[in-house]
Design a binder for these strands. Sequence first.
DNA 1: CTAGGTGCAAATAATTTGCAGAGGC
DNA 2: GCCTCTGCAAATTATTTGCACCTAG
Lengths: 326, 326
Amino acid sequence: MEPQAAYVERHRPPGGRRSGKRDLIVNTFLGQHGHLSADDLVELMRSEDHRISRATVYRALQWMVDAGIARKVDFGEGRFRFEHSYRHPRHFHLICKSCNHSYEFLSSDIEGLIEEVADARGFDVRKSVVQIYGTCEACRTGRQRPEDEAPTELLLARDALRIAIATERSGLEFYTRAARMTKDVRGRRVFQQLAEEEGEHLAKLEARYQEVLAQDPDLESRPAFLFFKGAANGLFAAGTDVLAKGVDDKQALMIGIRCERGSHRFFKRYGERFEDSEGKRIFMEFADEEREHLELLIREYKSLALRQAAKPPRRRAKGRPRRASV
Amino acid sequence: MEPQAAYVERHRPPGGRRSGKRDLIVNTFLGQHGHLSADDLVELMRSEDHRISRATVYRALQWMVDAGIARKVDFGEGRFRFEHSYRHPRHFHLICKSCNHSYEFLSSDIEGLIEEVADARGFDVRKSVVQIYGTCEACRTGRQRPEDEAPTELLLARDALRIAIATERSGLEFYTRAARMTKDVRGRRVFQQLAEEEGEHLAKLEARYQEVLAQDPDLESRPAFLFFKGAANGLFAAGTDVLAKGVDDKQALMIGIRCERGSHRFFKRYGERFEDSEGKRIFMEFADEEREHLELLIREYKSLALRQAAKPPRRRAKGRPRRASV
DNA sequence: CTAGGTGCAAATAATTTGCAGAGGC
DNA sequence: GCCTCTGCAAATTATTTGCACCTAG
């Protein structure tokens, strides 16, 4: 209960005045999970034997939305529902029209595509909504869904860590191989250093993963929350495959650059969503380090290009000409 | 005006009874574009000097939604809006909170990912909503957006054809090269045949593209409506790159299989969305042909595998072991 | 003492419904 | 003539607001 109170304090807007009624509503709201309508919350207050006006509940909800404690969601029912954001990052929804239950998920891939579409149209994104309406597995098969659901935050932590671990693992492998096959001495040292750092990251992330798993015995077997195809085997896995086919030093650096950029974005994007201070700390820190890797690789790439310009190597086969993208 | 009437007739539910008032509302509605609220439509009727009750408009809108002529959309304004589906396939929205204008787009990539997420959760999708809220370019830069917008259907046709052409073009190149480098005689013939058919498709699609362009002088320069990264240079382009690096006959077939599957899905998915009978015909027909290609390639792959099993070739280097996907 | 916060009841806004009458088939 | 469609007004539902009163700072 303590951290929740701290969370509210952190979000309390200045200049306001506190009130017992509102605190009661806020605490009751934060104690729930799922998506409450204003009326659900009124009923909840009444059932706890608190005489609170419907208008006050509406006002408290608006206050929470303004403060960033709650999000107003709209499932097309003709009224709004509210979900709190305490340890509950924003996400997308699968909405079953049969049992009216809603399931949460995130897709880094979809988020990335949304950004690209918005960029292409010069659109500045404030928030995005993805809702999949249909019939859930439980309703179609008659089986009932497991009553207990893990907190969203835990699922996000689990999935983000899995992806981060796969990424670091593939990064380690990539840099180890790249170091082995790089001819340029400076370049080789860079790859060795990066391999070492990825190894350290890996150890930290794996320890963190075990801590997260310890919080719920069923956690490993619960369905996916965060989808990220791009990192199925780690961002660097495809790069390692290319390495195996033989590339020159510059190409190896370029692959590293692309992967680190993806990796940096990933850590940043999901680090920002953790309420959990430890998970957040790790992700934000790693985002910074991956950015440094990125800059290091870019510097190295430029330096190598300069040195090669002075002493041009034999040319390889030219690539196919590219057509305009669609 | 005629085809609109035919469209309504095709959707009119049996057992009903027709009425002048409803026809008036439906025709007025179909004559508009953009997203009308019920009240907008009432005003519109009144401005045309028709004495029609608000309730009747609501009832007519509900009737159109049930008949599939209209879609109810919800931009979180606390009331619904309606868009008609005559020559107006379903799509996603960019919604500007500043000028309240909404822009339409489609992303095959996002649609594909949504299907994957739903599959992973055993969810049966009826419809999906993607809404990007923020500020549009016109509002941010002060410039005003061009007043005329091309009909959605035309933009979809343009983009779908562009992608289809890129796909067929890359397919032609892929099969031509594959035929040249295939050692197995049967396999070579298959690739030659496919190359020929892709060539025919290409010619048809290019002719169709010119017809579509003729319908709006500015069409080529309008912003993208349909996004599909997967086909930036044609689905087969990546396959052709791999060919260049040297693959065996089986691998070439497998690449063809993957590409044809993507191509089939693409033609099917967007063919279904065309109201336009000619574009629809081409796409649906091509979807069938690509499916036949797919089946042909699969048969060929199996046959080759059988023949190779009888006379096992030298083994190539083994691939890296794969980790569980995320 | 004073700017918020609260309760209550009335207002608003979008949409639906009951019912009597009009009008296709 | 029957059954659906229409108009009108009243009802319903979710949410907001005016106003008198209360209370924390």
